[in-house]
């Protein structure tokens, strides 16, 4: 497939990765190489081969609905880059239309 600047930009945006100009060019080249590398798989006849969705044959691993202690007070925020205790702090969440964005 054709690896375009737009594709790289779109994927970088989806990945929430800021890329410099040079880095974008390098990533485009890398995409090209990796897609070339994996194109070998196209030669395989995979008709009727189920995808291995899980690494294990195990199933039904569940736990009882029994509470355990949460982290001690303050521990949740101990590593926070910014906090307004007891909250985490992030830049104001505002959509382009001036509306608070909602969780999708």
């Amino acid at each position: 497939m054709d690896v375009t600047d737009e594709l790289v930009a779109k994927i970088a945006r989806l990945s929430r990765l800021a890329l410099g100009e040079e880095e974008s060019a390098e990533m485009k080249e890398h995409f090209r190489k990796v897609l070339g590398f994996v194109s070998e798989l196209e030669s395989l006849d995979l008709e009727g081969v189920a995808p291995s969705l899980f690494a294990l044959d195990a199933s039904n691993v569940q736990r009882e609905d029994e509470p355990a202690p949460s982290l001690p007070a303050g521990a949740a925020l101990a590593n926070a880059p910014a906090a307004h205790p007891p909250f985490f702090l992030v830049p104001r969440i505002v959509g382009d239309a001036g509306e608070p964005e909602m969780s999708p």
Partner: peptide, 25 residues
């Protein structure tokens, strides 16, 4: 500046080149 920019820059500055390659792929 702003949330999305914060995400992109934090990750762009925090990850090395190989990690970024794998995330993108």
């Amino acid at each position: 500046s702003g949330l999305v920019d914060m995400y992109c820059r934090s990750r762009g500055e925090g990850f090395g080149a190989e990690v970024k390659r794998r995330i993108l792929i």
